[in-house]
């Protein structure tokens, strides 16, 4: 091929070396270490087969963490995309100051997640901004300790996550909307479509590639969630907001490295299966122009 002559393949080597050393090798060695008895108490590492996985199943607390992670991922994926799409639709019309709004909504996703975590801690505190606001508008009965109440803490964290990344989804949707050929929109206007019909039958189907990438990114990101949970609740109170990554973190803190690694392999498999299945489903509905 023409390109082969212009750029020799060995130029890939530096990238492959970095990728191999920092991603492929740790991932594969992780699979291996999950089959050993590696922990802080032992001087040497021994191969023990599937023992760690059997212990994981027997202990049963990973199931709880997986359940929280799935609920969290579902909420974040739905609302991050719903909100992102809504913002993108509004900010691609002739609304005044749309560029300023685009910047404002995108800004949170360039901030450190830990910073977002501390900001939301202040918002969610019992005497924090949210409860004061609720009391001010006469909804005092709805106030609670948002991160201390086991029934709502997981949802409160997912709101912080949606707030942070809805702007990122918005940016991808805006890019997708802007490349939709004007003729198609104009043709649908001439055919007499209203705004909602135009969104439903013209814009949304043509946005399918943006939709696919956004859904996949938010799914993977939220299944792997760690920092925001760690900053807001560390998985507590009790294990009310324990997600798989905080569970793995705790097992490593206990010095149970192989056990934590086995949990990590489980998370990897769950993410791979869900992402590939979602990708397969979403790809089918993408339209080629």
């Amino acid at each position: 091929m023409h390109i082969k002559k212009m750029y020799p393949l060995w130029l890939l080597l530096p990238v492959l070396a970095v990728y191999g050393a920092l991603y492929i090798y740790p991932t594969l060695s992780g699979f291996y270490y999950s089959l050993t008895d590696w922990n802080i108490y032992k001087e040497s590492i021994r191969f023990v087969g599937l023992q760690q996985y059997r212990d994981l199943l027997a202990a049963g607390d990973l199931v709880n963490a997986v359940r929280h992670t799935l609920v969290y991922a579902a909420i974040v994926t739905v609302f991050q995309n719903g909100l992102g799409l809504g913002l993108a639709l509004i900010l691609t019309t002739r609304v005044p100051g749309r560029n300023a709004f685009r910047t404002v909504f995108f800004l949170p996703c360039v901030l450190s997640t830990l910073v977002i975590g501390y900001v939301f801690s202040a918002i969610y505190r019992p005497e924090g901004i949210l409860n004061e606001l609720l009391r001010f508008v006469g909804l005092g009965f709805a106030t609670t300790d948002w991160l201390g109440n086991a029934d709502v803490a997981l949802y409160a964290i997912s709101v912080a996550n949606v707030w942070q990344y809805a702007g990122f989804a918005m940016a991808i949707y805006i890019a997708g909307i802007l490349v939709i050929p004007k003729e198609l929109i104009e043709a649908s206007i001439i055919d007499g479509s209203g705004y909602l019909k135009r969104v439903r039958y013209v814009i949304f189907p043509l946005l399918a590639p943006s939709f696919t990438i956004n859904v996949i990114l938010s799914l993977i990101g939220s299944l792997k969630v760690f920092e925001i949970v760690f900053a807001l609740t560390s998985g507590g109170p009790g294990d009310a907001t324990e997600v798989v990554n905080t569970y793995i973190f705790d097992r490593f803190s206990d010095g149970l490295y192989a056990y934590g690694t086995a949990a990590n392999v489980c998370l990897f498999l769950v993410i791979a299966v869900i992402s590939f299945y979602a990708l397969h489903l979403l790809r089918r509905r993408e339209v080629q122009l």
């Binding site: 008895d37 922990n39 108490y41 032992k42 212990d55 202990a59 206990d254 010095g255 149970l256 056990y259």
Partner: peptide, 11 residues
């Protein structure tokens, strides 16, 4: 249970 898990891991 925490202690049991760690004790088994330590053999």
């Amino acid at each position: 249970k925490n202690i049991d898990t760690a004790a088994k891991a330590a053999g």
